[in-house]
Design a protein around this nucleic acid. Structure first.
Length: 946
DNA sequence: TCCTCCCGCCATTAA
DNA sequence: TTAATGGCGGGAGGA
């Protein structure tokens, strides 16, 4: 209904009653009148026109596309002859579209002439369980019982399996123990089932405990033992499995061939190849009737560990022993060859298999296709895919996923999309994996168009009932926001880059749209919606009755877990000093900027877009507002920037922008100063008086020694001239200068954190000794305190400097301790991010002559190396977002000045937003973003409105 | 567990 | 006196 929306003008009259209407509807839905604008993907109509639609497939497509009202009419239409079989098949088709499937089931439950069968109920229960919609699940169970259709052992098998899959094994056990209360007494079969469910989910300890308690009561048989043994083998605890076999024999039960095969497989799984082989020999010795499963296990086991020869030998031997290989045996051999030998040999075996009259199954093809893809032979992989169709072995979703994944991996995004397209034409529908793979691939090339495709894919997947992971949603949203931002501002000429415009409007739009989505949440606060609350809500809150989401305030939700970062809904990194500094630079590093008001800067930078961090947790919304905290950070930034000459303080609250072109000069001055001080310090150290004289004397002396130098009269920073100003001595500005001097006054490229701390501590330490020489006992302690504080400051400084690309955070090669590498001005030549590139680029051309002066000195001997490392590093630092999505994109400043100022009080602020939301509609220029938001709102409505 | 560094208290300074 | 500034270190978050 969203992919091909049956919109207002397309809606059918209320009473559809004849067949032609029905057909008309079907035709119409199959060919949407107003297809949505497609971005990069050619207009896919995957839900339509399967080449030979069976009735169930056709129904499934209809269900996927219809809104609830229309759907009710269609499903209740007398033209459809509902049978249990048809319902089951349709439900299976809708397997990956849980909400829609349940909707279908519920609508049909009210059908005048049809009642659901037990198996349909089981399907529905399974789907509800898969959605973790336990309320619906138990409602279904109750309804089953009311209609005397069950629940039966199968129902409980499903339920327990779903609980275990959801990470609730205890709950599953409880369900098993309470089966009889639902009218379904436990027996050996159901006992074995719960054991199996637990074991297959690797909850073997739990299964074994249950087994020990109840094996007497249910008279555990060979199957029970096999299940547990298989469990131990699954978690590679073969000795436990063996022990269990001992118990089995003790209790008078004979292990079967299955038992032995389980053990054999277990040894291979645990990597105990030798033991496996010996076990097999024992089996032979004991005259076990070795079957094809045993041989297949051997072939597979040897194959995956790369012992191809042995695998082949076993394969050849089995025929001699009178056991014919099965398709599975061939599959095992082909898999081994693909993985550890050559795919060509695998193809040979494949052909041999066919020539002998075996019919390859989907697994055979999938294994081979994966092998071909892995070896880079994509074309042949596609050929085999075509061949599958010819062999009446339709590619399944795994087949498609493999090919799509490999195309994505090699960067052939278009081809991947083509395959995806083909998928839509057949009966095979994409699954969550398909979407995840494709969406991730859309971030590889870092192209805005790709991000739009990602947006479209996200819409599509939601449409089909897949719940994107929060990470995926955020990433796509971030991507789209970025493109929106870029489209709105960066693509325009510089003159259009008016911060006040986008700061207010861009931000407002975002917030309003976001509010819309949230409104839907509150509106649709049904059980199902809880699925969409990803962790921290997820599992533990799933079963609880839905509590109304805490009303949007900034207050952390008391229900959520502790005072962790999850509560504020943003990553720590999103508020880092470095990022803030980047945004600061984006704002001001532009032609025409001459002066900067700190109020302005703070308000522009102060509001962070925390909502996009967790669009599914309304309580996480909060505005990191215009308050002291944010402003405090501005001081840190301006102090560091001032130290390297980018800014100069004019007056209270006022700085003038000098730009990056001022850096070379500042560095040069720092260097000169630093060199002077080295002489000074040397003298000072030689002079024992230094430790006795008073502060004033110290000053006088230092000033005196400085006068020996032909110092630059314009230099007014006097960093190493601490007077009696204790505060100044420890200031971030001075620390920054001294930090920078460490690099510019030497030829070292990298300085470790420890070294930096020591060097910088040196001054303060000495000063503190001077100050507190009377309290020598305290000295040591003080210096330690100083050090800890200073290290924190170094981090602060480093973050700002590295956001300017003056330095880079790295590690010492030997000890892997944190260190900083000087990039100097070169660091700015490689800034791939568009905004920065532009900003830095202009400046750099202006300063090239000066750069030569400083750089030739500072970086001369390091050039080659530095340059090399730099490209990679700059790339990494600037593009790392694309690697981990939400963290990576920097949105620049969004904060609207006026609103930010109003927003120091939390609740009032929220109300303001609410009011604005209701009157404002989002107006993105970015169509994909617009679609995404409106889509989400619609989706929630329709899923849960029946 | 240790490293990193954000947060915000509150002292100091400037207007 | 008030507002601006910024030192400082606790402790949260992340690797």
């Amino acid at each position: 209904m969203f992919g091909c929306r049956e919109n207002k003008e397309g809606k059918l009259p209320a009473n559809i009653s004849n067949r032609s209407r029905m057909l008309a509807l079907q035709l119409k839905t199959a060919a949407p009148k107003n297809p949505k604008p497609s971005f990069l993907i050619p207009c896919r109509s995957f839900t339509t026109s399967p080449s030979h639609p069976s009735q169930d497939s056709h129904l499934a497509n209809l269900i996927l596309k219809s809104d609830p009202q229309t759907l009710t009419q269609i499903l209740h239409s007398p033209q459809i002859d509902w049978t249990s079989d048809l319902v089951d098949k349709t439900l299976k088709r809708l397997w990956n579209h849980g909400p829609k499937a349940l909707q279908f089931f519920r609508i049909l439950d009210h059908h005048p002439n049809y009642t659901h069968s037990c198996s349909s109920f089981d399907h529905a229960v399974d789907i509800a369980g898969r959605l973790r919609d336990y309320k619906s699940l138990w409602t279904l169970v109750a309804r089953m019982r009311a209609r005397r259709l069950g629940p039966g052992p199968r129902t409980f098998a499903i339920i327990t399996e779903r609980y275990v899959a959801a990470g609730k094994p205890d709950r599953a056990v409880k369900v098993f123990l309470s089966m009889h209360e639902h009218g379904c007494p436990q027996d050996l079969n159901s006992f074995n089932t719960i054991l199996d469910v637990l074991c297959k989910a690797k909850r073997v300890e739990k299964a074994y405990n249950l087994f020990k308690v109840f094996r007497g009561k249910f008279k555990a048989d060979c199957v029970s033992y096999n299940i547990i043994a298989n469990g131990w083998c699954l978690i590679k605890r073969t000795p436990k499995a063996l022990e269990l076999l001992g118990e089995m024999v003790e209790r008078g039960l004979d292990p079967s061939l299955t038992t032995f095969n389980i053990m054999l497989k277990g040894y291979f799984r645990a990597g105990q190849i030798k033991e496996a082989w010996e076990f097999f020999l024992q089996m032979k010795k004991r005259k076990c009737e070795i079957d094809v499963v045993t041989y297949t296990t051997l072939v597979h086991g040897f194959g995956v560990v790369g012992e191809i020869k042995k695998a082949r030998k076993v394969f050849d031997e089995m025929v001699g022993e009178g056991v014919l290989p099965s398709v599975a045996t061939y599959n095992a051999l082909i898999q081994g060859l693909c993985k550890k030998d050559s795919v060509e040999n695998a193809v040979v075996v494949f052909e041999e298999m066919v020539s002998k009259g075996y019919v390859p199954n989907v697994t055979t093809y999938n294994v081979l296709i994966r092998g071909l893809c892995h070896s880079g032979n994509m074309d042949r992989a596609l050929e085999f895919m075509d061949r599958m169709k010819g062999d009446e072995c339709e590619p399944n979703v795994q087949t498609y996923n493999v090919v799509i994944r490999y195309f994505c991996d090699v960067g052939e995004i278009e081809k991947a999309l083509n395959v995806f397209e083909k998928m839509g034409c057949g009966d095979c529908l994409p699954n969550l994996d398909t979407y995840n793979v494709l969406i991730s691939a859309m971030f590889v090339r870092k192209k805005p168009e790709d991000l739009l495709v990602a947006g479209k894919l996200l819409i599509e997947m939601v449409d089909r009932g897949f719940l994107p992971r929060r990470f995926t949603f955020n990433r796509v949203l971030d991507g789209l926001l970025l493109t929106d931002w870029l489209m709105n501002h960066v693509d325009l000429t510089h003159s259009n880059l008016n911060p006040s415009y986008y700061c207010s409007k861009g931000f407002q739009h975002l917030m309003f749209s976001y509010r819309h989505v949230l409104k839907i949440y509150r509106l649709e606060d049904q059980v199902g919606i809880l699925h969409l609350r990803f962790p921290p809500f997820s599992l533990s809150t799933m079963t609880a009755p839905p509590s109304p989401p805490p009303a949007t305030e900034q207050q952390p939700d008391p229900a959520s877990t502790g005072p962790s970062a999850r509560n504020h809904g943003y990553s720590r990194k999103q508020k880092s000093l470095g990022l803030l500094c980047s945004n600061f630079l984006v704002l001001y590093n532009r032609d025409g900027v001459t002066s900067i008001g700190l109020d302005d800067a703070a308000s522009r930078l102060g509001l962070h877009l925390s909502p996009i961090c967790d669009p599914f947790a309304p309580h996480c919304i909060r505005f990191i507002g215009f308050n002291g905290v944010e402003r405090r950070r501005i001081y840190d930034i301006v102090n560091v920037l001032e130290s390297v000459g980018v800014l100069a303080r004019k007056a209270k609250n006022q700085y003038s922008w000098k730009g990056f072109k001022a850096i070379p000069n500042a560095l040069q001055e720092l260097r000169e100063e630093g060199l002077r001080e080295n002489i000074c310090n040397f003298d000072g150290n030689e002079d024992p008086k230094g430790y006795q004289i008073s502060d004033d004397e110290d000053d006088a002396e230092r000033c005196g020694s400085q006068q020996n130098e032909n110092s630059n009269p314009t230099l007014n920073l006097k960093p190493m001239n601490p007077k009696s100003d204790n505060r100044r001595e420890k200031s971030l500005a001075l620390l920054t200068q001294n930090f920078v001097k460490l690099f510019v006054c030497s030829t070292v490229e990298t300085i470790s954190l420890d070294e930096a701390a020591k060097s910088l501590l040196g001054d303060a330490h000495k000063a503190s000794v001077m100050r507190s020489s009377k309290f020598k006992l305290l000295t040591n302690f003080c210096s330690k305190l100083d050090e800890a504080a200073k290290v924190r400051r170094i981090y602060d400084i480093a973050n700002v400097l590295s956001s300017m690309n003056l330095i880079e955070k790295t590690h010492t090669s030997d000890t892997r301790k944190p260190a900083f590498k000087w990039l100097g001005l070169r660091g700015k030549e490689e800034v791939p991010q568009e905004t920065k590139k532009r900003a830095f680029g202009t400046d750099i051309t202006n300063v090239s002559s000066k750069r030569g002066k400083v750089d030739s000195f500072i970086g001369g001997k390091l050039d080659g190396q530095k340059q090399k490392g730099l490209v990679g590093e700059a790339d990494r630092s600037n593009l790392e977002d694309s690697k981990d999505g939400s963290k990576s994109y920097q949105f620049g400043p969004f904060a609207p000045v006026t609103i930010a100022r109003a927003g120091t009080g939390n609740t009032r602020n929220v109300h303001d937003w609410e009011k604005l939301t209701s009157t404002y509609r989002p107006q993105y220029q970015n169509q994909a973003l617009k679609d995404l938001f409106s889509h989400y709102m619609e989706a929630w409505k329709t899923w849960y409105s029946v």
